[in-house]
Design a protein around this nucleic acid. Sequence first.
DNA 1: CGGGACTCCTGCCAGC
DNA 2: TGCTGGCAGGAGTCCC
Length: 297
Amino acid sequence: MPELPEVETVCQGLREAMLGKRFTKVTLRRKDLRFPFPGKFATRLKGRTVESIVRRGKYIVLNLSGNLALLVHLGMTGRFTIFPFQFAAGKDGKGPLHRTAPAPILDKHDHVIFDLNDGTRILFNDSRRFGIMDTVKAINVNVHPLLSNLGIDPLSKDFHAGYLADLFKKRRTSIKAVLMDQKSIAGLGNIYVCEALFRAGLSPARLAYTLAASGKTHPKLVVLVKAIQEILAEAIAARGSTLRDYASTDGSVGNYQFQLSVYDRENSQCSRSGCRGKIRRSVQAGRSTYYCPKCQQ
DNA sequence: CGGGACTCCTGCCAGC
DNA sequence: TGCTGGCAGGAGTCCC
């Protein structure tokens, strides 16, 4: 379940493997993920160089030469695995060593193979196929329908208590639903929203506007912004959380799951010092919510 | 228009 | 042991 820290970690891995490299071959092993691949997807990418890789919320944008961008969303189970080039001798076993793409044994969910000009091979695997890939003219990235409505990044300087106050006062739903709404804030998902609300001492079921009712900014919003930014920074430093599906581009897992306070910890003791509460699980909008009913109000 | 329910998909796990 | 049903969840779509 990749959220902002996991996507950021994947971006870092892709940058190391891809920047300045050229696609020599792109192979599709099926015609769609969540949506069909756009027409001529593979031939459109071939020959282009990867110039930069940026994250927009939970999306990855690869800016390619020739004014094209490759847009990727990992969905639930999408993962890239990088296989560095190998050295091989000529066909007759003689001749000079040359770089060649490795030949990893393919899994049935390896849907896309990217071969780079230095012999690196990158597989995109997505068992549940909630992932997305699309191409768009680079100059039009920000008006792409999947990106044009994204809210601000919680790590940007524009994300502050005042922004949350404006956001919350016009919403009649729970804080959790607002924080998870990508049109409001881009990048948070179930895990980190649960963790941030715990750290801020706010109930996930509390209605958003109750934190924005009065004229001046509610002090809890300052605490919430700090909690979100701290948790994201800690999770990025730990290379994300691996609960079920996530792995980074070298196949390794994240480590932040060992630092989770509430997520997937139903019935465990609340970790806040002095609190005798017990972590509960409830369901909001069909999704599990974990919280301490005692210290989150 | 806002908000909630439903939907997609497959691996995994509990329960019989 | 082997099957089955339920669950996980990001985000688009649909409906009230």
